[in-house]
Design a protein around this nucleic acid. Sequence first.
DNA 1: CGTTCTTATTGAAAGGTTTCAATCGCTGAA
DNA 2: TTCAGCGATTGAAACCTTTCAATAAGAACG
Lengths: 363, 363
Amino acid sequence: MVDTSPSLGRSPSVKDVAAAAGVSLGTVSNVLNRPARVSPETRSRVERAMADLGFVRNESARQLRMGTSHTLAYVMLDASNPFFTDVAQGIELAAEGADISLFLCNSNNSAAREESHLGHLMQQRVQGILLTPVDPESATIDLVAGRGVPLVLVDRKRDDERYCSVAVDDELGGRLAIEHLVDRGHRRVAYVGGPEKLGQVRDRLAGARAAWADAGLLAAHLTVLPTQALTVGEGRGAGERLAGIPASRRPTAAFCANDLVALGLLQQVIGSGRSVPGDVAIVGYDDIYFAAAAAVPLTSVRQPRQELGRTAAELVFAETEPDHLHRQVVFQPELVARASTTGPSSGPSKGPSKGPGKGPGKG
Amino acid sequence: MVDTSPSLGRSPSVKDVAAAAGVSLGTVSNVLNRPARVSPETRSRVERAMADLGFVRNESARQLRMGTSHTLAYVMLDASNPFFTDVAQGIELAAEGADISLFLCNSNNSAAREESHLGHLMQQRVQGILLTPVDPESATIDLVAGRGVPLVLVDRKRDDERYCSVAVDDELGGRLAIEHLVDRGHRRVAYVGGPEKLGQVRDRLAGARAAWADAGLLAAHLTVLPTQALTVGEGRGAGERLAGIPASRRPTAAFCANDLVALGLLQQVIGSGRSVPGDVAIVGYDDIYFAAAAAVPLTSVRQPRQELGRTAAELVFAETEPDHLHRQVVFQPELVARASTTGPSSGPSKGPSKGPGKGPGKG
DNA sequence: CGTTCTTATTGAAAGGTTTCAATCGCTGAA
DNA sequence: TTCAGCGATTGAAACCTTTCAATAAGAACG
């Protein structure tokens, strides 16, 4: 053990430091908080004593006295989804500047865990909570906000003036994906995703349908392949169902509700000896790190993840200002085209391209 | 008359609850901590008052008085690496049972951030710290442990009796990978990874070399392709260098120091029109979720990630016991064979397979 | 020398919780 | 009637920090 300090049985307090330095405890506190008010000699004497004793400020006591804490918390929906860790990174960037440390909690898609985390955080009197909720309509949210804890919803919105939120326009994202596929000459497309109770899944589909209609295409030619969840396994399953559709009616492209589903679909297509985008073009959603790293790099709708986090942090800081008006910030997604739609054998392989699109080609 | 309106300007304290319920504050505390000691009527009266006022225990005050906290922290090296989020999940499982909440901090490979996080955590008097350090030999670690904070190193070890640690036998992992490749008939293999200062990179290579020698193969035929970091991009670069080696000397398989590198390599190989495992068989390391989800599912050395986290949490709880002896727990990795080595056209495509391996085939 | 002004330091109070010895109100026994 | 015994309740102290009015010690000035 490297125990340089005089063993005290407990960690040293300002009082111990004061005694060691031969000053009053008020002076020690001044050294910590208003060093300019203390004469240089005294200050260095106190600093020496602190170093000798291995003094560490007791944050609980500080917080109790001050009433404010130096922590912000992000209760994330799924820590193993790279999307959310990127959002967290954005938050951290914003917090860093404010000398605030970020407390990440993982609700792991469980409402019970989310509630437990929120309870703990309220007891800790954190400065603010950022939350991507399991269910945006949950009453727990009202409870937390009702207690006066600054709260910002992240990547979810709620038609409710009482909350700040940051989200991305999922309908626009759906439009972008479909416009891109139509541009590349696809006239039969599958939308892969579910369950429908997820707002994201619904909104992206709505955008897709709107764009499809705007292109003057037949509604029936935009097939929906529902999934139970947005996972790789479900994507694989959807791939099998897709392959089962008779060639004459089979979509030449798939727009997946997120990248995990898209990766699963990609895996199934390649694994069964077909090619991407030759046999099926694929568009994912989120543009996670692994989308670009896939065997066939994935075209995907990118959300400004870090920006999302950074903005959420700023909003939560603003919550404490007097007369604060809650804001719903909505970001615009952006399509990132890669080989899974623009690859060497892009575009539908049969049938004339009668649309106004650029048609097949390397792009 | 009891004032049920929660608007008090500050959040209600036990004192407020006591006043509202017409009891002393000691009784309120008893209701919270030893409900059996309070008569049923009184208890329900107090509980009612707490609900009416929206009372939330102030954790700072509690902690100040008690000296113990209910939080455990995991300072992780890289929150965007699925490996660490899985470890975190294991920790959380163990913490859940102990009514302790887990505080995740991301050092993001920065020593400065790591230090800042550790400082904050010490001030918070967390119950214990789990740490995957940027540098296992850093003096900061001694400092923290010297202050008496329970500390366990995760996925890193240190030849030092003063710390508990949990790690995985990287040398064995290296052996497993090479034995698998030799079994499948490969006689020229590349080890892809770096920088060498990472203990993991060194140990895995050492194991690989040992297994290679044990198989009676020529040391020179185990090529090392160094990388700057363990990322997808570096893996792609290594793939290009691999392709540049004259066919006569070119390795027929690659063992990558982690899955990110392996995925990059896979992408480069597939992207340039060659096949896996036909032209190059690939073994990764970590068996992250995306390894199985790759276009060609990746053979990988799996580490018991959740187990790692769970055990680390148990060790940190044990730290507070008197006469605690620090333990270094080492887990055994396990090879998970998938298509990237056992696929339809597995095994080296040219030259007779003179080894005792199962040879090419579907496996 | 007395006064005022400045600067450095001090001591006590406050913040919300838990603990523990002390007290209260009863019941049953002597 | 008094007293011990018992369970329920109480009040004050302690945890550590920050704040702020008060004090002390000089310095500048008349």
